[in-house]
Amino acid sequence: MMMSNIVRTTTKMVSPFLVTYSIYIMLYGHLTPGGGFQAGVILAVSIILLMTAHGSKNLEEKVNETWFKMIENIMAISILIMVSIGLVFGAMFYNFLHRGTFGLPISGGMIPLFNIFVGLKVGAGFMVIYYALLRWF
């Protein structure tokens, strides 16, 4: 099942910008509005747009369901590992990294890392739900 030529090409032209924008929201979540969850939703939407326009059968070799499951599990485990590393430095959930300068992209200790993990996890999770719904067709 494939949509028409115009829809396919337009989604192709828009999707790199959407991916870049979601990575921007993910990395700059501690400076600007947004955060991990929103970035993950945009990331999932940019892939779902491509899949609905081109047909999920045609993209089977480029995106794979197993990858998304693996990414989601790895990210869930790494969030837990990251918050429990703080035990070594004093307390659970302790922000153990150097805080940096106020208002720069590299600052805030482990908050950007937390945003990245949550963003990838949410994006992969929505893709897994999408695949589960797709199985009924």
Binding site: V83, N95, R99
Partner: peptide, 21 residues
């Protein structure tokens, strides 16, 4: 204290990190 300019993220990811995780 947190060192980020987005206060919502400071609340979510530092003071209330337990909740977010």
């Amino acid at each position: 204290e947190v060192g980020v300019s987005n206060l919502v993220m400071g609340v979510l990811a530092d003071w209330r990190l337990y909740d977010s995780v």
